[in-house]
Every structure is written in structure tokens, then in C-alpha cells.
Design a protein around this nucleic acid. Sequence first.
DNA 1: GGAACTCGCCAC
DNA 2: AAACGTGGCGAGTTCC
Length: 464
Amino acid sequence: MKIEPTSLEAYRLLHQGTLALARAERQGIRCDVEYIESAKKRLTKQIERLEQKFLSTKFYRHWEHTVKGKVNIYSDTQLRIFLYTIKKLKPLKTTETGKGSTDEEALLGLGIPELNNLLQIRKLKKNRDTYLDGFLREQINGYIHPSFNLHLVRTYRSSSDRPNFQNIPKRDKESMLLTRRALFPRPGHQLLGIDYSGLEVRIAACYHKDPNMLKYIHDSTTDMHADMAKQIFMIDDFNKDIPEHSYLRNAAKNGFVFPEFYGDYFRNCAEGMACGWGKLPHGRWKSGEGVNLPGMALSDHFISKGIKSLDDFTNHIKEIEKDFWGNRFREYAKWKEQWWKTYQKNGFIKMKTGFTCSGIMGRNDCINYPVQGAAFHCLLWSFIRLDTILDRFNYKTRLIGQIHDEIVFDVYPPELEKILILAKEITCKELPRTWKWINVPLSVDAEVCDVDASWADKKKIEIP
DNA sequence: GGAACTCGCCAC
DNA sequence: AAACGTGGCGAGTTCC
């Protein structure tokens, strides 16, 4: 399988993109070496304490007993043998190669309290060894210079390495604070992130033009994820401002809508939602389980609606999927079929951005690549344009990185307002003016940190 | 003793 | 009919 620029414009995008990203790499991101060193020490102490606690448990002593040599509690191979061969527990899921899984979901599912301890240690080690250590190893004079690659990803998205700037913790509050507290703007400056909202969904709509999707995108009073949450969780009076409802909206978005767009199907979605977000087990559900809705646990809520087990829930999601592709997004579904057929006939597909994907692709690849690629190209075009303007008009603000649909700036504070306006103009107005195939409105959100504050301190800001 | 692999987990 | 898209990276293990 191969993707290549098959228009001059596509070639130029990569050429200019490489230059603009190289300038961001040269700028780098300041990091607080002292903080990193002390945070590492703190983490090491915490890890040692948790290790001691783990080593004194009955669970570990049993494990130790069954092994000839020394136990390495961080060896998944050893843990797998102990859990699934010695203790003869049934693995809740298997790995790619068919062996019993020891990932977080699988371990939690076993209901062994000592394993929660191990999971906690894993998390701390990840933060210490991948992120903090990575920053420390890669920093030069207090600056890291992550690489941004345009030549490594199948879809012609970008990747980042040494260190990877595109996977620094964000969702988990504790990990986010720990790692992002290490990254700073240059002295006297402030960090700013401008990100496209729902970019891939919008770019997909440029291909399939489904009227219902276009309505969701154009009409800001509608909310696709809220509608899906109402349907999945059977809530009549949905209110985004109720924290529980907001939680369920997220569950619907990440547990159903996005996986379906990537090509997943109801069985995985149901299981993922039930076990991941709702913490509801396989088999029948008991009262009091799952996340709390106002005055009621999720399990009671479902039971009251006649959904009493994971099987019931799976059937429920199956019906919703049928409605999703058969009614709600019928034109989208038709486009997917048509697109797949066209590929099978021609052996290639063309991205909106002038790249051609050819060679052997699966059905999901065929549908995902042109969307993922073109969405990133929107970001790259905006990045190049901003880079040009900042340079031409001698701004002191710099571009320092990019995370697929977000541009990260190191802002000279007196320029903040101008930068916000400029960024919005380029990303939402100039881009669609230049690329006529963008037939949907684009929008961006902004998050900014105070002057001299770390990347952990970012707050939403309105763009004037 | 290093290359290549697997697994788990972070991001979009 | 089939069934989650794209990466990077650390640690453990296996192979040569």
C-alpha cells in the first residue's frame, strides 16, 4: 500500500510543511530541568513504597512460591503464567497473538485488589520513564526539540519523536499535571494551543455530504454526541450541564460514535462502554453498579429500562447501530459502500488534498485514510501559512509544535490578541477559500496559559 | 550483545 | 460479510 502526492500542490504542501516544521523544531520547548529531576525522585520514592506494599501481599508471596528464580513484577510474561497457568484464572481477553491479556481492563476484571496496586505502579513508571525521563534525555540547555515527521505515516499524517510531542498525557488529571508541569514557554512568553473542533468528522463530510451530518455541523443548536447519548442511555431530558449527562455524552462519543466512524461494530462498542466507562461487568448487572446518574447508579437506570445484562445492552447497541447507519447517516453509509466499490474496481483512491492511495487496502483503511490524511493536511496548510506570516511581519511569537489538529504557539504576550485573530482567520477563513472542496464551516478552540506558566495550566479562552 | 519482536499505554 | 484508523516508546523476551 502506498500513498503519494500526485499533484504539484500536494508535493508543495509536503515540501513547505517540512520547512515550517523544521523551524518549529529549531525553536524547541523550554523545560524545567530542576522540576523534572525532583519529580522523578518523588515518583521513584512513591514507586518504591508501592513496590514494598505489593511485595508484602499474600498474592505476591504465592507468586514468589511458584517461581524457581526471581520474580520480576513488571514482566507481563511472568504475570501471565502466574495468573492464567498457575492460578488457572480465565483471561477476560486475549492479546493480538492469542495469549491471555494483562492490560488494565483484564486485570481489573479479575477483581484481585493487589493487582490495582500493580496498575498504580505501572502508571507512575510510565510517567517517570517515558515522559519525564524522555524530556530530560532529549533536553539541551533546558529546551527539548521534538521532531515532526511527514514521511513516516501511512496516511500522510505526521508523527513526532525524540521526544514524542503528540502523546503527552491529557485525560488523566494526575498524569497530565505531573508531565505538563515540566514544559514551559520561553521566559516572559505564554503557551497557546489552537485546535480544530471535530476536524475529521467535518472533513469526512466533505467526502460523503450526508445531509444529516451537514445539519449537525452547520446548526450549532444540534449536538450529535448528545443525541447519541440520549439514545444509548435512554435519557429523555438530556442536559449537558448536568455532570452525569456530560459524562454519558462523552461515553457515547468515545465509546460509540468515533469507533463506528473508524469502522468498529456494535459488539465491541457495547463491551467497551459497559466495561470501560460504566464499569459494568459481563453477565447480569447488579443494583448499584456503574457510574452514578442523579440519584441512581447506571446499572439501576438500565435495569429499570429493561436492560439487565451485557447481552441486553449489546442487543440495544445493535439496534442503535442499525439506526445510525440505516437512518441517521444513511448517505454516509452509502458513500462508504460506493467508495469501497470504487477502490475495488480501480485499485486506488484519491484524497481531496491531491494524494493518491494505491495498493492493497482493507475496507476500513480505504475509508479512513483519505479522511485522516486530508484532515491533517488542513492543519499543515494552516501551520505553513502561519509560519510564513509570523516570519514576514517579524512577530516575536513562534510556532513550536503541532498535534494533528492543534497548533502550539510560544506567544509574546503583547501579540496574543493579534495571534488569536490571525490564527482564526487562517484556519477557518483562508483555508476554505483556498481549498474549494471544503464545503463545511470550520471552527477552532483556543487554550492559553498565563505568562511564564507551565503547559499544565492552560485555560480555555474566547477568540475575539 | 544486539536486533526484532510483543505488550501495554499515551496521544489524535 | 466483516468487524477500531494512525503513531512512539519503554520494558521484557526471544532469536541469532
